[in-house]
């Protein structure tokens, strides 16, 4: 989850500030390489679009990416910066995502 070169939308929010039903992509994070690798292996990287199932400012978050639901601790979620997606389809944002 390194900083991206292209940035289709200027708005960046911590994952904990998204609302239920919001769609977003990972923009950046202040996680360690190890934690980043774990999240990437679980499918959460800059290429994926996810939907927020549960989020609260101080509490844990649940997101859905593809068919998988992930629960993230508040400490982890607040360090993940996201780029909210306005479009309803995952593909339109994914096209703007950086290629690994």
């Amino acid at each position: 989850m390194a900083s991206t070169v292209s940035d289709p939308l200027p708005i960046r929010l911590p994952l904990t500030q998204l609302k239920r039903g919001d769609r977003a992509m990972v923009a950046d994070s202040s996680l360690s390489d190890e934690d980043r690798a774990v999240l990437r292996a679980m499918g959460l990287d800059e290429r994926c679009t996810f939907t927020v199932c549960r989020a609260s400012a101080g509490g844990p978050c649940i997101i859905q990416l593809d068919a998988t639901r992930l629960g993230l601790s508040p400490d982890l979620a607040k360090r993940i910066m996201t780029r909210p997606c306005e479009c309803p389809s995952a593909d339109c944002c994914a096209q703007d995502a950086p290629k690994p």
Binding site: D35, M42, P60, G71, D75, L76
Partner: peptide, 12 residues
């Protein structure tokens, strides 16, 4: 030491 970050897959 650092714990594994709490990220859990919630299976169907």
């Amino acid at each position: 030491g650092k714990s594994r970050p709490m990220v859990l897959e919630l299976p169907p």
